[in-house]
Simulated assay, not measured.
Amino acid sequence: MCMPEVDVEFNYEAIRTLVDIERDWVPKSPGTSLYLRPTMIADGAMLGVHPSHRYYYYIICSPSGAYYAKGLAPISIFVEDAYVRAVKGGTGEAKTGGNYAASLKAASVASAKGYDQVLWLDAEHRKYVEEVGAMNMMFLLGDTLCTASLEGSILPGITRMSILELAREMGIKVEERKISVDELIEANKSGKLREAFGTGTAAVISPVGELTYKDKTIVINDKKIGALTQKFYDTLTGIQVGQIADTHNWVTRV
């Protein structure tokens, strides 16, 4: 993006100080949070196709309720094979506004059809699962937790990283690899696809109840929250709110 890097320690202290100042805005109800988003935009007085000479850095700070109105309930996902969100060599692995802009058309179409989210496929083959608009995706295939490998077009989410670390600590086999839609359809037929869920900062964990690809709709775990999905949600949110000991040094008290 050709933007200057913000010093990690400076950014950390800025966020900590902001939360301390605005602590009265932190909601107390279960499932709520104070959403924080460090942001940088170009602020140069010019018109042209080149990096800006000046940038504006700020932190968005807003009380937030549950990401989905239905709360922790299985969502329906439309698998998009016409539009693409990102390609290798582009900005797919970065947290940029342009990535969201590229997703709006397909998301609008899916929403009009009654779906909660869009699942993107790889741009080259249009067959391998990448991520959902606001989340990384994970699938419990048999006893193995599978998620798409990071190959340049998928955001390396912090919640994704946390869940994979928790899974390994629980003794669950983890695979980061290519996962095709056809594999998921066959796994659903054989009963191997046991659970599916998304991970993200805002949603934390979102169970998936059904996937629709072309003319096929597969129902996952009878549209119920899976036991492992629930365990991940309870564990991660428990650590976040101090109900479970943080042995990973993930939490900062303000």
Score class of each variant (00 low, 15 high):
Met1Val: 13
Glu5Cys: 11
Asp7His: 13
Asn11Asp: 12
Tyr12Trp: 15
Glu13Ser: 14
Ile15Glu: 09
Ile15Leu: 14
Arg16Phe: 15
Thr17Asp: 14
Val19Glu: 05
Ile21Leu: 13
Glu22Asn: 14
Arg23Val: 12
Lys28Ala: 14
Ser29Pro: 09
Pro30Asp: 11
Leu36Pro: 02
Pro38Met: 08
Pro51Val: 08
Ser52Trp: 04
His53Gly: 15
Arg54Gln: 15
Tyr56Phe: 15
Ile59Lys: 07
Ile59Asp: 05
Gly65Lys: 04
Tyr68Arg: 02
Tyr68Thr: 01
Gly71Gln: 04
Phe78Cys: 07
Glu80Gly: 03
Asp81Gln: 12
Asp81His: 14
Asp81Tyr: 13
Val84Cys: 06
Gly89Tyr: 04
Gly92Tyr: 00
Glu93Ala: 11
Ala94Gly: 12
Gly97Ile: 08
Lys105His: 14
Ala106Pro: 10
Ala107Phe: 05
Ser108Trp: 11
Ser108Asn: 15
Ala112Tyr: 09
Ala112Ile: 07
Ala112Cys: 11
Gly114Gln: 11
Asp116Arg: 02
Trp120Asn: 02
Ala123Ile: 06
Glu124Val: 13
Arg126Leu: 12
Lys127Thr: 09
Val129Tyr: 00
Glu130Leu: 06
Glu130Ser: 08
Val132Asn: 01
Asn136Arg: 03
Met137Ser: 09
Asp143Phe: 03
Leu145Gly: 02
Thr147Met: 06
Ser149Pro: 11
Leu150Asn: 03
Leu150His: 03
Leu150Arg: 01
Gly152Ile: 08
Ile154Leu: 06
Pro156Asn: 07
Leu164Tyr: 05
Leu166Ile: 13
Arg168His: 10
Gly171Glu: 08
Val174Ile: 12
Glu183Ala: 09
Ser190Asp: 07
Lys192Arg: 15
Glu195Asn: 03
Ala196Asp: 00
Ala203Thr: 05
Ala203Trp: 00
Val204Phe: 03
Ile205Glu: 00
Pro207Thr: 02
Val208Glu: 01
Val208Thr: 02
Leu211Tyr: 00
Tyr213Leu: 05
Asp215Phe: 10
Thr217Gln: 07
Val219Phe: 10
Lys224Val: 04
Ile225Cys: 10
Gly226Met: 02
Gly226Thr: 01
Ala227His: 07
Thr229Lys: 00
Gln230Trp: 05
Phe232Trp: 05
Asp234Asn: 14
Thr235Trp: 10
Gly238Trp: 09
Thr247Gln: 09
